[in-house]
Simulated assay, not measured.
Amino acid sequence: MRTDDALAAVYQHYLTMEPYSQQDEHTYQLSDKVGSGNIKRVTTYSGIEILFSQVEYHQPFPTYFASETPIVELQFALTGERHVDISGKDYSLSIGQGALIFIHDFEAWFHPPAKELYTSFSLGIPVPLFNYAAAQLSKKSSIHFKQVLGDQVFKPLVFQLDSRTQCMIDSLIVALNNNDRSCLLMEAAALEILNRFMTQLFDLAPIPAGFSREDIRKLYLAREIMEASMVDPPSLLCLSRQVGLNDFKLKKGFKALFGSTVFEYLRQVRLNHAMKLLLNQGNNVTEAAVTVGYNNISAFSQQFYRKFGVKPSEVKKIY
């Protein structure tokens, strides 16, 4: 049984209001009279709501929605810009932005763009799951839903979407559109995204001895650079210059903060992404290897087997 059926009920109610109607277990279609497109939805075992919206309205079509249920949601604006009036406050995300939002007992008017493709991705997080994750991550401080929201009805924490998260979102979108999706892998990816932004937005990463908060910011930047340049990564010396840390501090801090060396981390990112390509897309082994930066297919297969205990060719046969 899921941890928060109330959250699922809120999403179900919203997604079956005019101008949407449910087509099957995971698809909510926009009325042809209003526009084109749909919303895909999967609810995981722990109650996480995973949604991908890809719609285009013919004309402006504001809709009203209200709920007393407390909600935590990770939102990502991919194309287009939707404006929302939430209890009298205007809220919107620009393309390439994300937000961790906290909301309770609210009224909202949604204003989607007209004659423009609007795509967004979101993760609805049950409040008990957020509070549990916060308790596990914040050993020295108390972070929970009520504390973050305070006496407000709505609070967004806005951030820029990075390349690694974009990769994970792309994989989840592919899975949402795949009838042979693995909901277990989808839940794991959703939790990884949640963990990533909770750690960053609430400054929950431990600070190694001899490092400052500014050093930690630079180490996160180094991680983003390595993830974005998976195919052609910079050398350690070049990376240290880009982020403004000497190579010794970069190596020591990266290991302390992320639990691996820079290039061990890069290898894990490559192999994880290769697994998602093999599971969710039509890539063969060679295509997956080259996409994540391997020119030596034999070396790729050996490292893949050491990490996952299965050969990449066998993954394609199974899935």
Rank of each mutant, 00 (worst) to 15 (best):
R2W: 11
A8T: 15
V10R: 03
V10E: 05
S21V: 09
D24I: 09
E25C: 13
S31F: 03
S31D: 13
D32T: 09
R41M: 13
R41Q: 15
S46L: 08
S46T: 12
I48A: 13
F52S: 04
F61K: 08
Y64H: 12
T69V: 06
A77M: 06
A77S: 10
L78E: 11
T79G: 03
E81C: 13
I86S: 02
G88A: 00
G88V: 00
D105S: 12
D105V: 02
F106T: 00
F106C: 00
W109P: 00
P112L: 02
L117I: 07
S122R: 13
G124P: 00
P128E: 05
L129R: 12
Y132R: 11
S138V: 00
L149R: 13
D162I: 02
T165K: 02
M168T: 14
I169E: 01
V174D: 15
N177W: 03
S182V: 01
A189S: 14
L191G: 11
I193H: 06
L194T: 01
L194G: 01
L204A: 05
R217L: 05
K218H: 02
E224P: 00
D232F: 09
P233G: 01
P234Y: 03
P234G: 04
L239E: 05
Q242K: 09
G244N: 04
S260G: 08
K276D: 15
V285D: 11
A289G: 11
A299H: 12
Q303G: 15
Y305S: 15
G309K: 14
V310P: 01
P312G: 07
E314M: 13
Y319S: 05
